[in-house]
Design a protein around this nucleic acid. Structure first.
Lengths: 230, 230
DNA sequence: ACCTGAACACCGTTCAAGT
DNA sequence: ACCTGAACACCGTTCAAGT
């Protein structure tokens, strides 16, 4: 958001260079890997000199952050659309959010990698990015809070639960992009995503163990009524 | 593994240059970020010319792969030690594996990032890395298979379950390194890790919902007896 | 067999200069 | 106000040459 502070001044020969550089970066990511995304390559793609980007971005990381922010905004839209589409059951809705997330990662792998790449390790530098990525998390947290209100998810720290859900899908996405899961097969990854979210919803433990085992009862109680704040 | 094919020939002025370069790389990662790890910097640190590394590594990515392989080996040792230490209950053992994993990521953040970085996207190029990282996964898969044999974890695809567990802790580690979880506080991350693994073990659903809700029953059945292979 | 020195193309970034 | 041209330090990589 806040792409430009004031009105859009169609400066620069071809329009808005800041926008043009982000588009160029997305094009580079779309056809290559994250390593190909250099400031100079983006400038070339946009048809300007290597120094021109510095009028609009403090450094290379700032361009990367802008691209990542675009990515999070697109991911947010996908997730929300998917959630409102799947009105079968609340649980199903959360599951479809996860599937939409994984689909995004598989369709735009280089862009997804950049969204979580080391360039943005100190995220305080990029306020817009921080804000947009937080919206993705908020979507998950709201979904879980809604399930709690509906009595479908146990009481407890919705924040910790949402982080757990995010970690799960993000981890699956990364393992898939690394070729460690689903082997590049989108349908397989979607199945794995549904399985994983079901496991998170209903647990891996046998129903008998969850009820009778002495070692499980306290753990279960802790993860329920008073999940520790993180 | 297979650090050197034949006997260790103490060539190069200071010993074994291949080994020296890996040590240098680890030192660089230990005091800086992943961006500081360049071939030339590693060569400088090892006291050789910029071209010398090419006697031992095909390119920069090969050095990164060797460093990552070290990381996975160290992570494997930590996880296994932690699992054998926590002999309280099998579930507890799995939980302690997760905590050991998260602790490793927090203690060696740059190294952890390199282990999952984009440089190693095509992992087929680095057979040793592939093999060692697979051992980490196998440790999780064996732990879950053991829980299944003990009747503590429901029957189903142990491979999918292990991938789910790995995705969860890997996702938590990444979110923590990105400052999105636990805010740099190791103790908070350990709590979050225990909470998350408990949620995966016992589920987020209310016990009532898991048993009575009509929409959950088929889902539960699917995630249990015959989890789809991925 | 292993390393050095020099070189090439490329990158991030800066800065004076142009319009 | 925005962009160009030239420059600097740095990087990955190659290759002839040294020992």
């Amino acid at each position: 958001m806040t792409r430009r502070p004031r009105s859009a001044p169609k400066s620069y020969h071809h329009g808005d260079l800041r926008e043009g550089l982000v588009e160029a970066a997305l094009a580079i990511l779309g056809r290559g890997s994250a390593a190909a995304l250099t400031l100079r390559a983006a400038a070339r793609e946009a048809g300007v000199s290597p120094a021109a980007p510095y009028r609009h971005f403090a450094d290379r990381d700032a361009l990367v952050a802008a691209v990542a922010e675009r990515g999070f905004a697109a991911l947010f839209d996908r997730m929300r659309a998917s959630a409102t589409r799947a009105r079968v059951s609340p649980e199903r809705g959360l599951q479809e959010i996860a599937v939409a997330y994984l689909r995004f990662a598989m369709e735009r792998p280089a862009e997804y990698r950049v969204m979580f790449g080391p360039e943005l390790a100190d995220r305080a530098r990029h306020a817009d990015l921080q804000q947009t990525s937080t919206r993705v998390f908020a979507l998950l947290a709201e979904g879980i809070a809604g399930l709690q209100r509906a009595g479908r998810v146990r009481a407890g720290d919705a924040h910790a639960m949402a982080l757990t859900a995010w970690a799960l899908v993000h981890g699956l996405a990364m393992l898939a992009l690394d070729g460690r899961a689903a082997d590049g097969d989108l349908a397989a990854l979607e199945r794995l995503g549904r399985t994983a979210t079901e496991l998170l919803m209903f647990g891996m433990a046998t129903p008998a163990a969850a009820v009778h085992s002495p070692s499980n009862t306290p753990a279960r109680r802790r993860s329920g009524a008073r999940v520790p704040r993180q």
